[in-house]
Design a binder for these strands. Structure first.
Length: 458
RNA sequence: GGCUGGGUGGCAGAAUGGUCAUGCUGCGGACUGCAAAUCCGCCUACGCCGGUUCGAUUCCGGCCUCAGCCUCCA
């Protein structure tokens, strides 16, 4: 049985899908107007990990994660770059998917785009107006927060007690200060769609209510996203969807809310307003995606993750040692992989990836020191378990730099021959000098009883 | 002001009412001409004050403190 923490109930309990054979999960995806940052990546990797774990237990899992391709930030960005909206969104959607793939994130089963669901949003807004949960004012449509009796059940805050020191945007034509926009008018130079309220575009929250219901039906099992979306985004989604259906129970929309913690940079939350953004695109230039993924999984998903260069390098070292164990036992053939029970137990306990990783590292250590017979079992378990985390999917020799390609190979091998001869001649000064030269070429020498091996230092 | 979630050894980071997390680093050793890689061993911890208990890092209460949300944000 899989245990999961539910933000809605603030406790951890056994996960039971509505349909025992089919788990339905929706995650709020990125707004595509710029490169994905490491915080976006954490959400994508954590959700990918959740889905991998669910798939190991349930027959059928449908994972939906949207692309927000209509938003004022996109409009601004298009203006600034003098490009069409569609050029911006198509470009960054593609880059997002490519970057996430580098981190071992498998594509969602569906990736709905907000602009493809405008009619669904309009229909939902109409339902809300009909149910007296929304009203038209000043060419806008607003959701009326007091229409939702259970408003605040996800975030633990009521609209009222927020007002004191809060910075809520006050518009004169709102009936309640907490009311928020469902539909707003568009100028000629802004993207707009025909609607019963004139040409306009949707507000931020309605798209997820519309897309999740359209793709998965209600109620679905898990709604995921970054912790900063709890309020107001997810709170407002619940309010909209519940008021549209007339069922005010918050879990009549999504049964379980799964939120990941933030990525911190030097002790501060990475955020657009602070400008301390670290892009995945830049990281993958210099580091293997697998190391970035493992670093993102090195803390429990609900905890904040302090991202540092040291974390990434330490993780890489740790990963290298696991690949060493596999390389050392390359001659051991296994028929099929196997997932270690301890690893599975850790993951089934609210996706405890740090604990799972500690068991995987132990398996690598056991493999490295085992005799050939034991090694077979450890190797099968190491690969099977690591693969469930999206790790150890590369060729060990290649990962470690032993695969000897490149135009300098013959030069390198000649230098190594010369060095070996120098060693035979006990001319260690010459041998060490050759090793220095090789090191400067990015080549590391490893002497062993069976001869000298070399690898590219990476 | 309201609402969340934290405070663990040099760093990262889990579990747990009484025994080991784990990784990286550091130190000692083995191996090696020296390296590299590998192996063996070792050190350092549970924010503060009370309470419950035979026993608390773990449960309860108070305090201090950090981070986040209440504005775009994963």
């Amino acid at each position: 049985m899989i245990q999961l923490y539910n933000t809605l109930t603030r406790d951890k309990s056994s996960f039971q899908p509505v349909d025992p054979d089919h788990v339905k999960i929706y995650a709020c995806g990125p707004t595509v107007y710029d490169y994905a940052h490491i915080g976006n990546a954490r959400m994508a990797v954590v959700c990918d990990q959740l889905v991998r774990v669910l798939r190991s237990y349930f027959h059928h899992v449908t994972y939906v994660s949207n692309i927000t391709d209509v938003d004022d930030k996109i409009i601004d960005s298009a203006k600034k770059k003098n490009l069409k909206i569609e050029q911006i969104t198509a470009r960054y959607t593609k880059i997002y998917n490519e970057d996430m793939k580098c981190l071992g994130v498998k594509a969602p089963d569906m990736q709905p785009k907000a602009t493809e669901y405008i009619p669904n949003m309009i229909a939902m807004i109409s339902r809300l107006i009909a149910n007296n949960a929304a009203y038209v004012a000043n060419s806008h449509v607003f959701f009326h927060v007091p229409a939702m009796p259970n408003y605040g059940s996800l975030s633990g805050r009521t609209g009222q007690d927020q007002l004191a020191g809060a910075r809520v945007e006050v518009m004169d034509f709102k009936r309640d200060p907490n009311d928020f926009v469902l539909w707003k008018p568009s100028d000629a130079d802004q993207p707009g769609w025909e609607s019963p309220w004139g040409v306009g575009r949707p507000g931020w929250h309605i798209e997820c209510s519309a897309m999740s219901e359209s793709t998965l039906g209600l109620p679905f099992d898990i709604h995921a996203g970054g912790g900063d979306l709890i309020f107001p985004h997810h709170e407002n989604e619940i309010a909209q969807s519940c008021c549209a259906s007339g069922n005010f129970a918050p879990d009549s929309y999504a049964k379980l809310w799964f939120h990941n913690g933030f990525v911190m940079l030097s002790g501060e939350k990475m955020s657009k307003s602070l400008g301390n953004i670290l892009l995945v695109h830049d990281l993958i230039e210099q580091h293997p995606g697998e190391a970035i993924r493992m670093a993102l999984l090195s803390a429990h998903y609900r905890q904040p993750l302090n991202w540092t260069q040291k974390l990434l390098l330490d993780t890489k070292t740790s990963l290298d040692r696991m690949y060493r164990a596999l390389e050392k036992t390359a001659h051991i053939l296994i028929e099929k992989t196997e997932i270690d029970q301890k690893v599975l137990d850790a993951l089934y306990d609210d996706i405890n990836t740090p604990l799972a990783l500690s068991h995987i590292k132990q398996l690598a250590k056991s493999l490295a020191t085992a005799n050939d017979e034991e090694a077979k079992i450890f190797k099968a378990k190491l690969i099977g378990s690591a693969n469930l985390l999206g790790l150890l999917e590369n060729d060990p020799a290649q990962w470690l730099g032993f695969s000897q390609e490149g135009d300098k190979t013959s030069i390198i091998e000649q230098m190594i021959k010369d060095r070996d001869q120098a060693r035979v001649d006990k001319d260690f000064a010459r041998a060490d000098k050759l090793r220095e030269q090789l090191y400067d070429m990015g080549v590391v020498i490893e002497d062993s009883p069976s001869g000298t091996k070399w690898r590219y230092d990476n």
